[in-house]
Amino acid sequence: MPVYEYTCEKCNNRFDELVRSMATEAKPACPACGSPKTNKVLSVFAVGGEGAAKSSSGGGDDPMCGRCGGAPGSCQM
């Protein structure tokens, strides 16, 4: 079940909503003011990326990223 982020047109409250079906077009009411005038907003999230790999490997010159433990370059990270 996806979690969508919404903003309220009336009070500018930003909130998350668990949506049981992606086909559902019904917009949730704002939990702060109860207004049905809400819009989906682009949600930005972070997944451990290149910066995390460099900081966890210690020296930064090590060819292995430390994630898979395989030979250098085997996971193409």
Results as ranks from 00 to 15, higher is better:
Met64His: 13
Asn12Ile: 00
Lys54Arg: 14
Phe15His: 09
Thr38Trp: 01
Ser21Ala: 11
Thr24Ile: 00
Val47Met: 14
Glu9Lys: 15
Cys75Trp: 07
Ser35Met: 09
Cys8Asp: 05
Thr38Ile: 00
Met77Ala: 14
Glu50Tyr: 05
Ala32Trp: 00
Val44Arg: 07
Phe15Ala: 07
Leu42Gly: 13
Ser55Val: 13
Arg14Glu: 09
Glu25Thr: 08
Ser56Ala: 15
Gly34Thr: 00
Ser55His: 10
Gly34Ala: 01
Gly66Lys: 11
Pro28Thr: 00
Thr24Asp: 15
Leu42Pro: 09
Leu18Ile: 12
Cys75His: 08
Gly70Ser: 11
Ser55Thr: 13
Gly66Asn: 11
Pro36Cys: 03
Gly34Phe: 02
Arg67His: 14
Met64Phe: 07
Ser56Met: 15
Arg67Phe: 15
Pro36Tyr: 03
Pro72Arg: 06
Cys68Tyr: 10
Arg14Leu: 02
Gly59Val: 04
Glu9Ala: 15
Gly48Cys: 00
Ala46Tyr: 15
Tyr4Thr: 00
Ser55Phe: 12
Thr24Gln: 05
Ser56Ile: 05
Met1Ser: 13
Ala52Cys: 00
Pro63Ile: 00
Ser57Leu: 06
Cys33Ser: 05
Gly70Met: 10
Gly34Ser: 02
Gly73Val: 08
Cys68Val: 09
Pro72Lys: 11
Cys11Ser: 10
Pro36Ala: 10
Asp61Ser: 14
Lys10His: 10
Ser56His: 11
Val47Gln: 15
Lys27Pro: 00
Pro2Asn: 06
Ala26His: 05
Cys75Tyr: 07
Ala71Ser: 12
Lys40Ala: 06
Ser55Tyr: 10
Ser43Glu: 08
Glu25Asp: 04
Ser74His: 11
Cys30Thr: 03
Phe15Glu: 05
Ser35Gln: 08
Cys68Ala: 12
Pro72Leu: 06
Ser43Met: 06
Glu25Cys: 00
Cys33Lys: 04
Met22Val: 04
Ser55Leu: 12
Gly51Arg: 08
Pro2Asp: 03
Asp16Lys: 13
Val19Leu: 12
Glu9Pro: 01
Cys65Glu: 03
Gly66Cys: 12
Met1Ile: 06
Glu25Gln: 06
Cys65Lys: 03
Arg20Gln: 10
Cys65Thr: 04
Leu18Glu: 13
Gly58Asn: 06
Ser43Tyr: 07
Met22Pro: 01
Glu25Leu: 08
Thr24Trp: 00
Leu18Val: 13
Ala53Val: 08
Cys11Ile: 07
Ala23Lys: 11
Ala32Asp: 07
Ala23Ile: 01
